[in-house]
């Protein structure tokens, strides 16, 4: 009896920090406001390859990834590559200051409440979700280091080469 009580108490305590398993989403659906005020959804880019990146101004790897993503957009934009960067910052001013100092050519969306990362149960920042021309999630890339450039470029190129069903 005593052992059962101890086991029950310990299992209750363990629940507090048990991570949930990431859902294997087939599609990524959301609608978020951009920094210009327009509501944007990945659905709006049907037939294109969309990379949705979850980032924040306080996240150093996110900052390091932006020049690379800018290059990708410039290189593959005409072939149908679209970049949507979802900022989870709580402070609008922080995002504005960041973008003023480091302007980018792609669309910045705002999700200060973290509703989409919560739904996806993201494990790290940044996380990039690659959506193919058919609207299905093809890859989820967690984190960013300089060595990831080649792998991400290859993933994007693969999807750009894939035909729209």
């Amino acid at each position: 009896m005593r052992r059962a009580v101890i086991a029950a108490l310990l299992s209750t305590a363990a629940c507090a920090s048990t991570p949930k398993s990431a859902p294997q989403a087939e599609t990524l659906e959301f609608e978020l406001p951009s920094t210009t005020g327009a509501a944007v959804s990945p659905k709006s880019f049907a037939g294109k390859v969309v990379l949705v990146d979850f980032w924040a101004t306080w996240c150093k790897p996110c900052e390091a990834s932006f020049p690379f993503y800018d290059e990708l957009v410039k290189k593959y934009g005409e072939q149908g590559f679209v970049m949507l960067a979802v900022s989870v910052d709580e402070d609008d001013d922080a995002v504005a200051r960041f973008l003023e100092a480091k302007p980018v050519s792609f669309t910045i969306l705002r999700d200060p409440a973290g509703t989409v990362p919560e739904r996806l149960d993201l494990k790290t920042m940044p996380t990039a979700v690659l959506i193919g021309r058919d609207g299905a999630v093809k890859h989820i890339h967690e984190g960013f280091v300089e060595e990831d450039r080649a792998a991400i470029t290859r993933m994007v190129e693969e999807q750009l080469g894939a035909t729209d069903p």
């Binding site: 305590a13 629940c15 507090a16 920090s17 991570p19 989870v88 990362p117 993201l122 920042m125």
Partner: peptide
Amino acid sequence: VGALGACAEVKPWQRG
């Protein structure tokens, strides 16, 4: 056990 249970998980996007 109470002290262990008081741990709160901070999600990656809440670390600002």
